[in-house]
Design a protein around this nucleic acid. Structure first.
Lengths: 326, 326
DNA sequence: TGACTGCATGTAATCGATTGCAAGACGATC
DNA sequence: GATCGTCTTGCAATCGATTACATGCAGTCA
């Protein structure tokens, strides 16, 4: 029997006779034959694999999205290759060079990468299928899947305003990140349109980790006058903040309201349960994977940059309350 | 210039003249040439990729380990392919079939997989390099990297005993998981050797999620007589438990001490800060990746199953205290 | 000048699966 | 019995990088 027949028996069983099909199955079982994916990829010019580049797999925010991506990819028969700390590392040409042709497309979750470098990737002749998700620049000429961060930040701040707060602070994200700017803008917009006081010293440098939140808390504790509520750039910063002020005897929400962003799993179970803006992480991951695979499999003509924008949802829990009367 | 020369210029620059090297670099730059990894893999019979199979990427415990694995793999020039919910899914032959030859080895973090199935994988002629990490069976004939769970569980329980508790409960992990049994055994061993009371109703069915911990809390709240301290199978269960009893007005550690397991990032920032057994997650991931790549690159003769056992460390924080005098 | 050494480069086979085309088998129809 | 169509199978080229071996060239020394 020729290898051609075996190949057909495995990939398109209806093209061979019942008898041949069974002989092949039997031989596969006996010899423990496994298909060589490299050879298949080489011949078909497609690895059926996508590369997901993230800033931090260890962060539950990203790992949930990765979960959804992996599920969708598996459903469509694609493998998932991960590259962690994508933008941090030495993005030397060699790295790109060796990465190429191993994956059919790139799903970028890391907003810190240099934009020019990105545009180079998508340019012909390589023309790598690319989706930028989560940390995407709003007006960039790429396919993007993201949430409307500025609007969601505005909503979060409005929630605090509605509760009666007028002295509101913000813990910012890391410098240079796309999201930092958008969320800060939304925060300021809400304060502005409500005519509330904006104090520069209440806009604290922060980051996306709990330690960043704790650091911001220490900065704030040193202030003469403190805000009565805080909009934190994400849940982790919010938690770090709440935890740190607790050491000084300040209790959330009695002494200070805090709202986060993301709705991580911990938010619901934290003490106090965290009020937050829920980002549809599963949907983000699923859509991003879907869009990337469509792009890979679709006709090259279809490649007009499309932008998906999902919306976030206010989840009110116990970490926000009306300000304490003085 | 022949392709052979180009290949040499890129892989072993010292084998060609300075002039040739430069002409090749120039051509690479101009044409945007990228190496075809499939062809390379096919020729060299090695994909320089490992497959990491996990039960749940979204879980911060695993995602931190994955982080360490990815880092070590990248350092040694390997890509990382992830398969989530490995044991859950339909492990039909086709899946294994198409997975094969895409990766040079398997790093299994999922203890729920069928053991017979595993042994089949490692048998000749395929003889897939395999490391079982974290959720490994102690006496299994595989290379393993794990922590001594039973001993660590004993230590955790001893901590509660030392504080003066004698009425101690346990939230178990999911049924069927290797770790569940080991941690329960350590718990019982500690109680036994201390001569403390063991009550079946204080050993609660649980799981690894916060919701599982919350469920266990509800079961416990219904009991006539309650323990004064709880050893939870992991930090998430501990947090879910503490959060849930708080709704009924029970405060940790005043009314009940709780110790967790893992030392997730949140443990330090939770309120109260969580006492826990720290598992060396980075070291686990790094060692596992190291061992797997050694196995892949090493001589086939070297394949005597080796077992790495790391130890956990008691981290005392605020969620455990002496029992309240009655 | 001829033989030899050492180095750079070219030639061609190889890895394993896929697939267009050709050939063969078989039955149906006239 | 010849012709045709249909269905199954085999042949052989192909994907792109690697590498053993062959070739060719320059320099050295007797």
């Amino acid at each position: 029997m020729s290898t051609a027949t075996v190949s057909r028996a495995l990939s398109r069983p209806e093209r061979v006779t019942e008898a041949t099909r069974e002989r092949v199955s039997e031989a596969v079982r006996v010899t423990g034959y496994t298909l060589n994916q490299s050879a298949r990829s080489l011949r078909l010019q497609s690895a059926r694999t996508i590369l997901v580049a993230l800033p931090d797999i260890g962060n539950p925010f990203f790992s949930t999205i990765l979960d959804a991506i992996e599920r969708e990819a598996a459903r469509r028969g694609y493998g998932v290759l991960v590259a962690n700390r994508f933008a941090r590392g030495d993005t030397d040409p060699l790295r790109d060079y060796f990465l190429s042709n191993r994956a059919d497309g790139l799903l970028l979750l890391d907003g810190s990468i240099d934009r020019a470098q990105l545009e180079a990737l998508t340019r012909a002749p390589t023309s790598l299928p690319l989706i930028v998700a989560c940390e995407a620049i709003a007006d960039a000429p790429f396919h993007t899947v993201r949430t409307d961060n500025a609007y969601a930040a505005e909503q979060a701040t409005r929630h605090l305003l509605r509760l009666g707060h007028s002295r509101i602070g913000h813990i910012k994200g890391p410098a240079g990140n796309v999201l930092t700017a958008e969320r800060e803008a939304g925060f300021l917009a809400a304060l502005c349109s409500a005519g509330a006081e904006i104090r520069a010293e209440w806009v604290l440098h922060g980051g996306f980790s709990m330690d960043d939140g704790a650091r911001a808390a220490r900065t704030m504790l040193d202030l003469q006058e403190r805000p009565t509520a805080i909009f934190a750039t994400n849940d982790e910063a919010a938690i770090g903040f709440i935890s740190e002020i607790a050491r000084s005897g300040l209790i959330c929400p009695r002494d200070m309201s805090v709202i986060g962003f993301d709705d991580l799993g911990i938010a619901e179970h934290f003490l106090p349960p965290l009020t937050t803006m829920r980002q549809p992480r599963e949907a983000l991951g699923r859509l991003a994977a879907e869009a990337l695979i469509d792009l890979i499999e679709g006709a090259p003509g279809k490649r007009v940059p499309r932008q998906f924008v999902l919306s976030s949802q206010l989840i009110v829990r116990g970490s926000t309350a009306p300000p304490r009367p003085r």
